[in-house]
Design a protein around this nucleic acid. Sequence first.
RNA 1: GGAGGGAUACCCAAGUCGGCUGAAGGGGACGGUUUGCUAAACCGUUAGUAGGGUCUAAGCUCUAGCGCGGGUUCGAAUCCCGCUCCCUCCGCCA
Length: 426
Amino acid sequence: MLDLKLIRNNPDLVRESLINRGEDAAPLDELLTLDEKHRKVLAEVEELRSRRNKVSQEIAQYKRKGQDPGDILEQMRDVSDRIKELDGEIRELGDQINALLLRMPNIPHSSIPVGPTEAENVEVRRWGSPRKFDFEPKPHWDLGVYLGILDFERAGKVTGARFAFLKGLGAKLERAVINFMLDLHTREHGYTEIFPPFMANETSMIGTGQLPKFGEDMFKCEGSGYYLIPTAEVPVTNYHRDEILEGDALPLHYVAYSACFRAEAGAHGRDTRGLIRQHQFNKVELVKFVKPENSYDELEKLVGDAETVLQRLGLPYRVVMMCTGDVGFAAAKKYDPEVWMPSYDRYVEISSCSNFEDFQARRANIRFRPGPGEKPEFVHTLNGSGVAAGRTVAAILENYQLPDGSVEIPAALRPYMGGLDRIMKR
RNA sequence: GGAGGGAUACCCAAGUCGGCUGAAGGGGACGGUUUGCUAAACCGUUAGUAGGGUCUAAGCUCUAGCGCGGGUUCGAAUCCCGCUCCCUCCGCCA
C-alpha cells in the first residue's frame, strides 16, 4: 500500500508509475478527489465532536449541582444527529479510499527498465552454459514416467489436471532438494527456519498483497474463509503483522518450506505437461525484514542466495531484471532467476526475488523502532524463492539425463539420497 | 461438539447505580534525591499510536483509542446486540 500522504503530495510521481506499469491512471484522480472530500468532512465532524465533549462536561456539572441543563440537551441532540450523519459519510469515503488504495500498485524503483510489457525485461547475468546433448534429450514428464517416479495419470484420476504423484526415488529426490535448500540457507546463509501454516486468513492475504486484486489465483477453503497459501511469503511475512520490532533485531532472515497452491486461473493451455505449472508445488522461500536503508543491498544478497542453490546443483541459469510492466503488483524491484530447461529450449523461471520496500509493511503494519524512544518506522520486506522445488526436480531430470533414460544425481544432493548417484529404470 | 470463564496501558490488575477516570493500585523500566560504593528508602516520569487543522519547521491544537463491529444516550471502559481470540472442564481425535 502506498502512503496516502505521498499520493496527496506527489500525485505526478504516482501517475507516472501507473503509466510506466501500463496501467490506468483514472483511479488516482478518483482517489485524490475522495481524499480531499474526506478530510473536509473529517474537519467538520471533529469540530462538532469537540463541542459536544465540552458541553457534555457542562451538563455533568449541572446534574451534579442538581440544576436543570435546560435546552442545551435539545441542542446537543441535534449536534449528535449531525455527527452521526457525517460519521456515515466519513465511513463511506474511508471505505472507498481504502478500496482504491489497496488496489494501487507499488511505485517501481528508479533502477529498473521502463516498459509496459515483459519485452523490456533485462538479462543481468548468466551462469553456466546449457549442455550440448549428443542424443535427443527427453522432457522430464516423459523421463519421469519412464523411470516410474512421476505419475500424472493417476493424479488426474485422484485429484485432477495440474497435479502429480511423485513415487519412489522421485519422491525422495523432491524431499532431498527441499532439505538441501533448507540446510544451505540455514547453515551457510544465516536464515532462521520456519515451518508455517499452509492456510492463511483474509487479513494476511491483504497484508502481502494477494487480496483484494488477485483472489482468483488462490484456492479458498469453503466454510472456514481460509485460503491455501500461494507461497510461504504470506504466512512468514504476516508472522510479524501488527508488530513493532526492535531496531536491534533487524535484519530478520527467515527460510520456510511450504507447499504452495495456485488456481492458475487464466493459464489454461499453458505448460499443460509436466511439473512446471501445477496447482500444488513445493517451495523453499526466503523472507527478510530489514531497515529501509539496507533493503537494496539485501535484495542483491537474496538473489545471490537463490543463485547459490542452482550453482551447487550445477544447473545453468540466468538472472532477469523485471521492467516496470512486469515487476508485479507489490514489488518495487524484482529479479527472476531462470533455469535452463532443455524441453522448453529456453530459460524458465525458477525463483523470483523482490524488494517490496514498505508496501507490504504498510498493509500488514510491520514497523521497527530505530532507537529507544524514537518513532516507529515501517520496515522493508523482501522475499524470494530459494528455490521452487518442483521445477528444480524437473530441471535436474532434464539437464542430468543420460542416453539410456537414467538420470545422474547432482553431487550436492547425493548425501540426501543415501549416497545414490543415479536414478535408473527398475 | 457440550458447559463455563476471560480480553483494560510494557506486565499484573481495579473500575462501584453511565458524567472532572484516558483510566485506581501494584510490578517493571527510566530519571532524580540520599549514599564512600551497592542495596534499601523517598520523589518524579512512564498513551504508545493513528488521523485532521495550522505551520518553512520546531511547535501548538483538535479528534479517535479500555479485544473487534454496531446500537442506546446530551454523554459509554461501564448498558444492549453481533463477532473474534484466549483459558478451564467434558466428549471426540492425528
